[in-house]
Design a protein around this nucleic acid. Sequence first.
DNA 1: AATGCCTGCAACCGCCACAGG
DNA 2: GCCTGTGGCGGTTGCAGGCAT
Length: 298
Amino acid sequence: MGRAPCCEKTGLKRGPWTQEEDELLVDYINKNGHGSWRSLPKLAGLLRCGKSCRLRWTNYLRPDIKRGPFSPEEEKLVIQLHAILGNRWAAIAAQLPGRTDNEIKNLWNTHLRKRLLSIGIDPQTHEPTSISSPLMGPVKRPPVSPSTRHMAQWESARMEAEARLSMESSLLLAPSTPLPPIKKTNPDYFLQIWHSEVGSSFRNITTKSEKLTYSSPVSQASVSGMTIEMAPKPEVELSSSNLEVEPESDLEKMKIINIYAGFTHSSGSSEVEDSSDTALRLFFDFQGQNDMSFLEAS
DNA sequence: AATGCCTGCAACCGCCACAGG
DNA sequence: GCCTGTGGCGGTTGCAGGCAT
C-alpha cells in the first residue's frame, strides 16, 4: 500500500546536486522557463525528479536569491512575522526579498527558536513561559489559540497604524492649527503587509476560522493627497462571557482584543508616536522586554 | 591525531489545494 | 461532483564540517 511516489524514482539521482546538474538546470530554465516541472528534467537532460528540480531552483539557483547570513534586521523581521503568521514560512519569506522559505525555516529552527527559548520566551506562542503576579507568584497564562493571538497582534498594529494615519490626515486637513512635530515615517510597514498578499491571506484565514462578533466599517485616510482605503477588519471571535460591553471605539476594541489575547501592556495611549515602533512592540510582546538585544547574543 | 558529538543546511517526504478534464 | 495531475508548503532527515575531548 502507500502513496504512489510523486514521480518515477527508479534510475533517478538523489542527494546533493553537482555543478553540472546545476548548470544544466539553469541553462534550461534561462532558455525555456521552467514550464512543467514534471517534464523539465527529461527536457533538460537531468536524471532528477521534477520536484527535486523545482526545489533546487527555488531554494538555491534562482538568480534573485540573496545568499549570506541574515542581518539583525532580517532576523528581527522574521521573529515579528512569525509572531503574526506562525510557521507559515512561505508567507514570511514573501516579506524578505531574496530569502527562501527553506532558509527562513532553517534560521528559525537553528538560531531564533533557541534564542527565544534561552530568554524564556515560548517560540511558538511568543509569550513568556510564565508570568509572575505580586500576590500569586508565577502564574501560567490561560491558553490562547494561535490564530486568535496572531490575529489580535495583527489587529492591534493595524489599528494603531490606522489611528496614526487618521491623525496625520486630520492635521493635514487643518493647516491653520500649529502642527506638532511629527516624526517622519516611511510608508507604514505593517499597513503594507496588511494590504499585501500576506495580510490578505491572513484576513481570509481569520475570516474562515473565527466567528464575527464585531466589525467596523471600511475607513479611509488621506495622507499627502493620497487616499488609502483601509481593508475591512478581520473577524474576531469573542464569546459573550468575555465581552460584556459592546466596544464603542477602535481603541476599546483593541483593548478588548489585547485582554482577550492575554496581553498585559497598555496600548491605548492617546499619543501618536511612531506607529511602526509601537507596532513592532505590539507584535513583539515580551512583557516589558521590548528590546531585541538578545538577537545580538549568539 | 583520532574520535565522538554538535550544528547548520540542503534535500527529501508527505500532505494539501487547486485547476482542468 | 469526482478524479487526476501538478505545484506549493511545512516538517523532517541526513550529511558534511566544525568543535570539543
